[in-house]
Computed example of a mutant assay.
Amino acid sequence: MGSTAGSTPAGIAAAMDRALTLAARGPAHGPNPRVGCVLLAPDGTVIGEGWHRGAGTPHAEVAALHDAHTRGCDPRGATAVVTLEPCNHTGRTGPCAQALVDAGITDVVHAIDDPGARSGGGADHLRAHGIRVTSEVRAAAALELVHHWHHAVTAGRPWVTLKTATTLDGRVAASDGTSKWITGPEAREHAHSVRAQVDAIAVTTGTALADDPALTARTPDGGLAAHQPLRVVVGHRDLPPGARLRDDDAETLHLRTHDVHHVLAALHDREIRHLLVEGGPALATALLAADAVDELHAYIAPVILGDGRPAVAPFGVTTLAAAPRWHTTDTHRLGDDILVVARRTPATEA
């Protein structure tokens, strides 16, 4: 039958922790959130577990119900502990709320509400069918797990991570234009691991023409990662026929605009939840000016140039008090380089 978690508050919390662990097995990229589900029998025994493996695959609740049946367990009268409110719409798969109703589940505990205009409302559907619903168990951890998706759904645009690779004095290239390589191999390997987790990666036509980047995600041995982000080129100029961005290693989208709001809207329409911006300074500056940067990945090398191209151009800040601020969430030493990860500071905290 499986292990006993207990139906006490402590047992429910333990089951939610397990559901969060299961959810983290799902892909960080893609249009759908990572979700985990644990089914508890009335005596607190775990009778089924599941997680969402990506768009088009069964949702966590359905996967957990299938697991229960595989174990020979009857889910009638069970409690479903889920990291996200069960969905209430038919998309690539059917509504999870109805699947729980049909299975005879009597209690549902979820960590956070589903903010989707189409997918939300599952809790109300469950209550209408006599199922007891409890929420906000391990809510902070659940929100952190899906914060890219949650932001994209609520804000109507992708979560934007701005990546810079600079010298100690903030330069991305020397005065003669050379920029390979400011950071070392460990930092570049880490940057590829980030690429493999995002939905899209953007550069300007200027960067594309100057550097001829592939914008692919690579494994440490140099091979292509299993997931490749959508490559986005922003700007009006054409890419030459032999550009690496025209190869078949990943899809490329050319947005012939300089309007970052149009860029973000177009990507949102394609269900892009997490956008990584790598270059160049013009795009970084435009996004900063539009207050559309949610996270910074600043790779800093112990190099000083004294001159050369800066990471960003002026974008209207004339006094320190007006400068946008982020709070540091993590730091990593990568060989001789340092990575600072920071997120925007809400206005109420500034």
Rank of each mutant, 00 (worst) to 15 (best):
E144N: 10
V153D: 00
W149R: 07
L84A: 11
N88C: 15
T164H: 06
A78T: 08
G54K: 01
T83E: 12
H125M: 12
A140K: 00
R138D: 02
C87E: 07
C96L: 13
R138Q: 08
A103R: 13
G91W: 05
L143W: 00
D169W: 08
Q98G: 09
V62E: 03
G91H: 02
T93R: 14
I131H: 01
R157E: 15
A152I: 04
T106Q: 09
V62A: 04
T167V: 00
V146L: 00
D113P: 12
C96D: 14
D169K: 01
R92M: 08
V82H: 13
V109L: 13
W149I: 04
G104L: 12
V172A: 01
H151F: 07
A55W: 02
D114W: 12
C73R: 05
V82A: 08
T106C: 12
T79H: 04
T57N: 12
A128P: 00
A142M: 00
V62H: 02
V81R: 13
L126I: 07
H151Y: 07
G121S: 10
R71H: 13
H110G: 10
D113C: 13
P58A: 03
A60R: 01
G170L: 08
L100A: 13
G156F: 04
A174Q: 06
H59N: 03
D169L: 02
A97C: 11
H129A: 10
E136P: 00
G130Y: 01
T134Q: 13
P158T: 14
E144C: 06
A165S: 08
N88A: 15
A80M: 08
A103P: 12
A174N: 12
A103S: 13
D169I: 07
D124V: 10
A140H: 02
C73G: 05
H69A: 09
H151E: 04
D114I: 11
A155V: 04
I131A: 04
H59A: 04
R138E: 03
T167K: 01
N88S: 14
G72D: 04
A174S: 05
G104H: 11
C96P: 10
A152N: 02
A60N: 06
D102W: 02
T154E: 03
P115R: 13
L145Q: 11
S175I: 11
R76A: 12
G77F: 05
P58E: 02
G91R: 10
L143E: 01
T90W: 10
T79G: 02
T90C: 10
G130M: 00
T167S: 14
P158L: 15
H125K: 14
G104V: 12
K163A: 07
V82K: 09
A174E: 14
T93E: 11
I112S: 15
G56D: 03
K163Q: 09
A165E: 14
L84I: 15
G130S: 07
T164W: 02
H148R: 14
T70W: 01
D176S: 13
T83I: 05
V137T: 03
V137M: 05
V62W: 01
A165D: 05
A117F: 09
C73N: 11
I112P: 13
G77S: 07
A128D: 03
A68M: 05
V108D: 09
D169V: 00
R92W: 08
A60D: 06
G104I: 10
